[in-house]
Design a protein around this nucleic acid. Sequence first.
DNA 1: TTGACAAAAATGAACATTCATTCTATAAAT
DNA 2: ATTTATAGAATGAATGTTCATTTTTGTCAA
Lengths: 214, 214
Amino acid sequence: MPYLNRAVPDPEPMDCRILTAGLTLFVENGYHNVSVHDVQRKANVSIGSIYKHFGGKEGIAKKLYYHLLNEIDELINQAIKDKTTIREKSEEIIRLIFTYTETERNIIAFIFQPNHQDFLPDEPPICSASPFRRLREIIREGMDDGEIREMSTEVAASAIFGVAIRMVQLRLDGIVENPLPTYLDEVFDACWNGILINNDESINQETEDLVAQL
Amino acid sequence: MPYLNRAVPDPEPMDCRILTAGLTLFVENGYHNVSVHDVQRKANVSIGSIYKHFGGKEGIAKKLYYHLLNEIDELINQAIKDKTTIREKSEEIIRLIFTYTETERNIIAFIFQPNHQDFLPDEPPICSASPFRRLREIIREGMDDGEIREMSTEVAASAIFGVAIRMVQLRLDGIVENPLPTYLDEVFDACWNGILINNDESINQETEDLVAQL
DNA sequence: TTGACAAAAATGAACATTCATTCTATAAAT
DNA sequence: ATTTATAGAATGAATGTTCATTTTTGTCAA
């Protein structure tokens, strides 16, 4: 069983083995390019067991999806519970996502890469799932508290977490070559302060003007 | 044939009809949930014609993919050719993407939603395709010219276009409720100036401190 | 500890279905 | 007349699913 919080039990029980095999294969080949037989072979279990435990291929995907969303949910809630400012909270969340992109690639790839509605047609889009809603809530709080400028929640959330998510996708696709944590400060700086050339000069200019007036 | 630049010819020739039908079905149901027969039925052509023209299902997808990437490429090059600053260029590009998300939903969805390697396994990831590379080049120029702060190209590109792309995805998933162009200024402002609360106060504070020292 | 029995779990061959592709026949164009 | 384009029934490989059988696990009496 692929965990973000707990350690994987040893020996891994059958249903965990099936989920682990499914995750790996789905990420490597894409859900639709993986047959139940592939999973069965990789997990070293029989076809029957898969149908007994999960009712079929979609059952595996669904269980994985719920489980991993829940893992991420717990992770986020745990990470921000003793942070006070939105800045600290979002920085910690991005740090976690970046770290796990390196250490638990498959889990992050399964959540961030595919269009889940392709294989879980009855699920709402992942952006409306709990952890993603949570991100927007955090941003919302930040605006209510005056820590963040007033703007649409979606725009603000995209401006912070959208950048991070984009970096994750670029990393998973091999465009970004260094481990993501390397970029943490840069990403965060770009989100909060914008990407304009540092406006120290303009500030100094304003100051000089003001002093001259005195 | 789904075009961004040209008008669709009328009557639509057979290969165009096939591509249009494919695009619609792929976006609505996901590539793997569409059979060649579905496309054939929707396009009002025979199975044979599809194999004659495209060699099969993957041929349709590949042709669509190349064609649409090319359309976007042309669009971008055309849009920025008489803009001078990076700011103007990127603003125009985002404006175009936002506009077409509303008017040519299927095209934008086909390019931005799926993980193309699921059905075009021999293609490099879309982020390394021409239009996306182009976006990073533009940002790179901006840094070389001193218009943008010095940072990793990928971070800067994510900070500008990643936010826009995220907004597109949220819009396609129905999370964002208003037409994207509504958010243009907000998005752009957030990218360039960051999302911090307007730092006029801190500037004033600095100025006052300085004045006090004199 | 051993052996008998029942319940639960696991197995995998067999089955059913879907679907990409082929191929031959027909129509249209040159 | 010959080439080219279109049609669609037929094919068969791939793959999701079932179920009768086997194996394992747990329980309890001797």
